[in-house]
Design a protein around this nucleic acid. Structure first.
Length: 287
DNA sequence: CATTTCACCTGGTGGC
DNA sequence: TGCCACCAGGTGAAAT
């Protein structure tokens, strides 16, 4: 479901609602997926912890947890500096995951896999019908917390971006989707940025000119930032932390517009499979 | 090693 | 209406 703009929107919303709150009790469903860390271990690490902040890393939502907050101590905490996170709860939404902040009496959605009851009386809920999402608890060792495997699309420089694709024979679309290269780009924003840059999805990544790659990087940043401003794309049932839909789907130029006229030249949009994913492009505007 | 394919899941849609 | 094939915003393991 969610790519960088949707995850960013959700992380911001959750952060605004739960920063400084304390987790009183954690409940988990009994499925094997989506638990990367066993529910028992997660509950042990979560209960009693304070939420120091929530941020996005790639397509992950990272909740920084601490044993202390403003002088208070966790029940069975283990020292450490004041308000320094000692563990992180990492949420990946997969295709259909949702992370919501609700009141305890809010109707329980089908496929709810986690409920974190907070001291304020609110609740964090993770809902995921397809169970492609992942919930993980990590202890923070030696300072630095969770880091994405690849580069952040919003901050990577022109040089580094171009260098990343050098010598690669795979299609540029597949390269954009590879999270160990860039973290955060998914099918919608790969298609939209390629359209705006005038590049066909099947073009070999390593054969694009530096100028083309720089145009692609800039358009990717533009499209991601615009999508964040509009609260992401609500293609199926995506909603933010408050249950509100995004509006960027209204701005899609090619994604899921197969057969419809290109908004720039009127040529019907085509769909092909690249890297196992549906890829939409304009045969006139993209070469 | 780089690249491609497939399995992991449920639900919605459109054809018959 | 019912059944079924097909599709979906992702990713990691297995195969090539």
């Amino acid at each position: 479901m969610p790519e960088l703009p949707e995850v960013e929107t959700i992380a911001r919303g959750v952060d605004a609602r739960v920063r400084g709150d304390q987790i009183v009790e954690a409940w988990f469903s009994g499925f094997k997926q989506p638990f990367k860390t066993s529910p028992k271990v997660q509950a042990r690490g979560l209960e009693g912890s304070w939420i120091l902040g929530v941020r996005r890393v790639g397509k992950h939502i990272v909740c920084a947890l601490g044993s202390t907050y403003g002088g208070s101590k966790r029940n069975h905490g283990s020292g450490g500096a004041e308000d320094e996170p000692d563990r992180e709860w990492i949420v990946h939404l997969g295709m259909t995951g949702r992370l919501l902040v609700t009141t305890p009496d809010a109707e329980l959605a089908a496929h709810t896999h986690a409920r974190l009851r907070l001291k304020s009386g609110r609740e964090i809920r993770f809902v995921d019908p397809r169970r492609f999402g992942r919930l993980e608890l990590r202890e923070i060792r030696s300072g630095s917390g969770f880091e994405a495997a690849g580069q952040e699309p919003l901050t990577i420089g022109a040089e580094e971006f171009a260098l990343m694709f050098r010598g690669r024979r795979l299609a540029i679309k597949a390269a954009l989707l590879n999270q160990t290269l860039l973290s955060g780009v998914g099918n919608i924003y790969a298609d939209e940025s390629l359209f705006r840059a005038g590049i066909r999805p099947r073009r070999q990544a390593g054969r694009l000119t530096k100028a083309h790659l720089e145009r692609l990087r800039r358009e990717l940043v533009v499209v991601l930032e615009q999508a964040i401003r509009l609260g992401g794309s609500s293609v199926s049932d995506y909603v933010d932390a408050e249950g509100v839909r995004g509006f960027f789907q209204l701005e899609h130029c090619v994604y899921q517009r197969t057969g419809q006229p290109c908004l720039r030249c009127g040529t019907p949009i085509r769909k092909v499979i690249v890297g196992g994913r549906s890829s939409h492009y304009c045969p006139q505007c993209q070469n």
